[in-house]
Design a protein around this nucleic acid. Sequence first.
DNA 1: TTTATAATAGACCGACCAGTCTACTATAAA
DNA 2: TTTATAGTAGACTGGTCGGTCTATTATAAA
Lengths: 190, 190
Amino acid sequence: MSKSTSRDKLLDATFNEVYMYGYAGSSTANILKIAGVPKGSMYHHFASKKEMVVAMIKERLIPKVRESFFVEIHEDSRALDIIIFLFKKISKNKMLIKHGCPLHKLMFEMGSLDEEITDLCYEEFLHMRDNFSQIIDLGIHQKTIKDIDSKSLAEHIITNSWGALSIPPKHSSKEQFLKDTQHIIDYIKV
Amino acid sequence: MSKSTSRDKLLDATFNEVYMYGYAGSSTANILKIAGVPKGSMYHHFASKKEMVVAMIKERLIPKVRESFFVEIHEDSRALDIIIFLFKKISKNKMLIKHGCPLHKLMFEMGSLDEEITDLCYEEFLHMRDNFSQIIDLGIHQKTIKDIDSKSLAEHIITNSWGALSIPPKHSSKEQFLKDTQHIIDYIKV
DNA sequence: TTTATAATAGACCGACCAGTCTACTATAAA
DNA sequence: TTTATAGTAGACTGGTCGGTCTATTATAAA
């Protein structure tokens, strides 16, 4: 049982606010209200709204995305099955299906607006890609995945998932996502 | 040579403002400044910011996206070549490569915020999908494209392109987009 | 107990937001 | 020429924005 400090409550509220309304659409007043923390505390812990969001990305968004998008690599399991399992796992995550990948959403919005936040998100994208390409390399070695440039393929799989997940909540569904990713599976399997 | 009325100037400025800063991040004051039109004119032509954006989507965004994403179908040309040509055409569009598909960007942002705008964008997505699936059906008939459910494949191709185009301007390139879409080509060609 | 510092608390600030209001001008039908 | 309407013009409003300020309280080291 953690204490949940003001800082923690602010980061949690900031994640939800920015995820739902975007960076520009989020308001510090609303974050403070939801966190139940006075303004003085916020500006004690963070220099500005942007710095709070940067901390939120590092301490909430990136860990959540890693938790959602990453799977363990067992040397004895088939790499293709790992990827199929991952797509199933993502499809069960209602947050992702409804509102998209929070990393993608923020990076896309900030691309034209703030270089620091964009770069922070893009670095995590590269990290995801490199992590993913290891699974693909394993699959190529196991001959369960076609011998395609693994970095490029990993990038393809991530951006494709991002695109599929960016269908608006009213029209998105687990089934729609799995149908889309099935094309990826059909493409990469030997 | 058109007259470029105040209404036209407002819609043009609104497209750019919303494309760059998002709906929440856009400001009417800035739109008015760039359009060189006083506030009174804006509220004479449109009931609200939202109604102006709705008009912008119908009269600017959707036509631009159709122009960018659609290709003519010649009965005598190979459907696979049409799709390859389309990807090349998109890759040459610096606006799309840098800032992504404006339809995708707005739909993704508004998904949690406004149902009317979201539905307007989603309808156009469906229109794009159906138009695209015709090309695929042609390809299946010509045996240049694998016999895969054409609606699902069209959706896959569009959302994949959207994902690939949502890489931030600093890190996006024509080459990166073509590399990504090459996976699609390799997947669908017989 | 004293002292320093971390954290809480919220009133307050100027800037900017979308939207309103009244006045004025251009156009064209009667 | 008169009258009606479409369009231009921008000052102004209430509310929200991120951020500052001063005051107070909690914590812990000296």
